[in-house]
Simulated scan of single mutants.
Amino acid sequence: MRSEKINWKLLIVVTVLVILVMNLSQVVSIIQTLWGAISSLVFGAMLAFVINLIMRPIEEQLSKSKAKFIQKAKRSISLLVSIVIVIAVLAGLVWLVVPSLIDAGEVMAKVVPKYFEQGQDFFNRLFKNNPDLVDTINSFNINWKEVTDKFMGFLSSGVSGALGNAVGVVGTIVSSVVNTIIVIIFAIYVLLDKQRFVNLYHRACNLWLKPETKAQITQALNIIYGSFSSFICGQCLEAFILGSTCALGMFILHLPYPLMIGTLVGVINIIPMIGAYIGGAIGMFMVFTVSPWLSVVFLIYLCILQQFESNVIYPRVVGRSVGLPGIYVMITVVVGGSLAGVAGMFLGIPIMASVYKIVKIYFKEAEDRKQMHSKEEEEENVQPSAE
């Protein structure tokens, strides 16, 4: 009797999985330790990926120059220009948003007590036939000076506590600064030396993999790169469309802070689907400092705009940019958000787009192989006449 051949690869995989499950707590601890060691490098690689989206077209344009100096230093020049662009954009956003937020906070501190008193007077007149309820409403007297003093005291105690733990605070700040510097430096090194990593990949694949396997992996990596780069560009385009539309509508409706709130809504909208609501809440707070009625108008307008954006603009712009049907975009955002929060919503779409394209290619190749196999079988079954 012929003995059955043992699938050693499957046996090893199953054994490893069983060992990992039986020692799950130790595995999680090891993963956390490894993540702490490489997290700065991972974030640096992510930053390099984003900057490279700006750097790559600049470098391609510089490659057309005939000047020897530019040809020799094109990568350094394109990296420097890209970093300057990123810093300029961030500085512009801060310049547009932060001063208006500070002004709105100062105005809010002045107008809230007045609105509170007006609200009390309104409810007193509304329920004047119910003395008990009027007394309850009047019992909500707030000493705003006392509130301010307590808030300042809280800040003072917080500062005192921080000073009391100065070593820990300084250590945290230094650690954050060092990690940020490592992220930036590593991103710069990756961008300046990116061709070295590409060559290393090809050498490793040529050494250890078959040509067919290398071609499949390269194709998958190109799909993943295209999906992530298209997603980031699509997010920026969609945020620009939403921010511009929001600002334009606010201009038409004569609402305050149109440019600042439009910018804020557009930037925070980078968080898929729910970002505009977060920006809208901040915008409503700012409009409220000018007029409570106008804040209601702004809320209604933004809800209508957000529904249009979530159901029409976002699936079409982002879905089309990554090559993913709109229905899959909405499913991915819902599922990814429930599994991993904002990170799941943000990363889920390009990951889903990559899987969708790879599976689509696999199905197409499998169908072609099946059709070819069926055709070969039909040709073998049809025998010529022996006459």
Rank of each mutant, 00 (worst) to 15 (best):
V147Q: 01
F116T: 12
R196E: 14
Q120S: 13
G161L: 01
I173P: 06
C205V: 07
G158L: 07
V112S: 03
V134I: 03
E212R: 14
I182D: 08
M108G: 03
F140R: 08
W208N: 06
S156K: 11
V134G: 00
Q195K: 12
G234D: 07
Y225M: 14
Q118C: 03
E212Q: 08
R196A: 15
V111R: 05
Y225L: 12
T213P: 08
C236K: 13
F228W: 11
I185E: 13
I223Q: 02
N199E: 11
L207C: 10
D132L: 12
F228V: 14
Y201E: 06
F240A: 02
T213Y: 06
F228D: 01
E238H: 05
I188A: 10
W208C: 09
N124A: 06
P131E: 10
G164T: 05
V198L: 13
P113K: 01
N130Y: 08
L126A: 10
K150Q: 06
V174L: 05
F122Y: 01
Q216A: 00
G158D: 05
N206R: 07
K150Y: 12
L207N: 15
V170K: 12
E146T: 04
I217Y: 05
A104Y: 11
D121K: 11
Y115A: 02
Y201W: 15
T136K: 03
L192Q: 12
F122S: 00
A166I: 09
E238Q: 08
